[in-house]
Simulated assay, not measured.
Amino acid sequence: MGIPPGDDDVVSSYETYVGERVLLSGPVANTDPVRVRITAANGDSMTVGVDGLETAVAVGDVVSVYGILEPDGRVSALETVKKPANNYVRTRVLSALAGLWVLWRGIRHWRPVPSASRIDRRDPPLRSMPTRLRNLWEDDA
Rank of each mutant, 00 (worst) to 15 (best):
residue 1 M to C: 06
residue 3 I to W: 08
residue 9 D to G: 08
residue 12 S to M: 14
residue 12 S to P: 01
residue 13 S to C: 06
residue 16 T to N: 10
residue 17 Y to S: 07
residue 18 V to W: 08
residue 18 V to H: 10
residue 19 G to C: 09
residue 19 G to H: 04
residue 23 L to K: 13
residue 28 V to E: 02
residue 28 V to A: 09
residue 30 N to F: 01
residue 32 D to I: 02
residue 35 R to Y: 15
residue 35 R to P: 01
residue 36 V to H: 02
residue 37 R to Y: 06
residue 40 A to S: 01
residue 41 A to E: 12
residue 47 T to Q: 10
residue 49 G to L: 05
residue 50 V to S: 00
residue 50 V to H: 02
residue 53 L to A: 06
residue 54 E to P: 00
residue 55 T to I: 13
residue 57 V to Y: 02
residue 57 V to W: 01
residue 58 A to F: 01
residue 58 A to V: 09
residue 59 V to D: 11
residue 61 D to S: 06
residue 62 V to M: 08
residue 64 S to Y: 00
residue 64 S to R: 14
residue 67 G to D: 11
residue 67 G to Y: 05
residue 68 I to K: 11
residue 68 I to R: 13
residue 70 E to L: 10
residue 71 P to Y: 09
residue 73 G to R: 06
residue 74 R to L: 09
residue 76 S to W: 07
residue 82 K to E: 06
residue 83 K to G: 00
residue 90 R to H: 05
residue 90 R to W: 13
residue 92 R to E: 11
residue 96 A to E: 13
residue 98 A to S: 11
residue 98 A to F: 07
residue 98 A to Q: 08
residue 99 G to V: 01
residue 100 L to G: 10
residue 100 L to P: 02
residue 101 W to V: 10
residue 105 R to V: 05
residue 106 G to I: 05
residue 106 G to E: 04
residue 107 I to C: 08
residue 108 R to I: 01
residue 110 W to I: 09
residue 112 P to T: 03
residue 112 P to K: 11
residue 115 S to K: 11
residue 117 S to T: 08
residue 118 R to L: 14
residue 119 I to K: 13
residue 120 D to Q: 12
residue 122 R to P: 09
residue 123 D to H: 06
residue 125 P to H: 00
residue 130 P to N: 10
residue 132 R to C: 10
residue 133 L to S: 11
residue 133 L to N: 04
residue 133 L to G: 03
residue 134 R to S: 12
residue 135 N to P: 00
residue 138 E to T: 10
residue 138 E to C: 03
residue 141 A to K: 14
